[in-house]
């Protein structure tokens, strides 16, 4: 197995681990933008997203609480981003360079 593939698989596992397990330990405090909005009084201008009814809204599954739904949502997100961004990059890539032989 080439080192490129090893790095790629290690990176994917790390991303899945961060999204699936690391997110359990994420801070639930308001982030910089939300905190600033609260401090200065424009937080009430925020509107619910039109996708707020999405089954994955708020990084959970059907609004369920707990760790497992968060993990499932995170893993789905990683796979979705990988599929869309990976496909896009593969389609956009240049084809003029010869494929590296042997690596």
């Amino acid at each position: 197995m080439s080192r490129g593939r090893t790095l790629w698989i290690a990176g994917l596992l790390l991303a899945l681990l961060v999204a699936g397990v690391g997110s359990w330990y994420a801070s639930a405090h308001p982030d910089g933008l939300e905190w600033s909005a609260e401090q200065t009084g424009f937080d009430d201008t925020a509107q619910d997203s039109v996708t707020a009814g999405s089954p994955l809204a708020d990084y959970t599954v059907d609004g369920a609480e707990g760790r497992l739904p968060g993990s499932v949502a995170g893993v789905i997100g990683v796979v979705a981003v990988l599929a869309v961004a990976g496909t896009l990059a593969w389609v956009v890539r240049r084809r003029d360079t010869p494929a590296p032989v042997g690596d």
Binding site: W8, G11, A15, G74, V79, A85, W90
Partner: peptide, 17 residues
Amino acid sequence: APLAGLTAAFVFAAQMI
């Protein structure tokens, strides 16, 4: 190209934390 897709996925995951 495969690294680009992977890095995007990693950024998504890291943004969750």
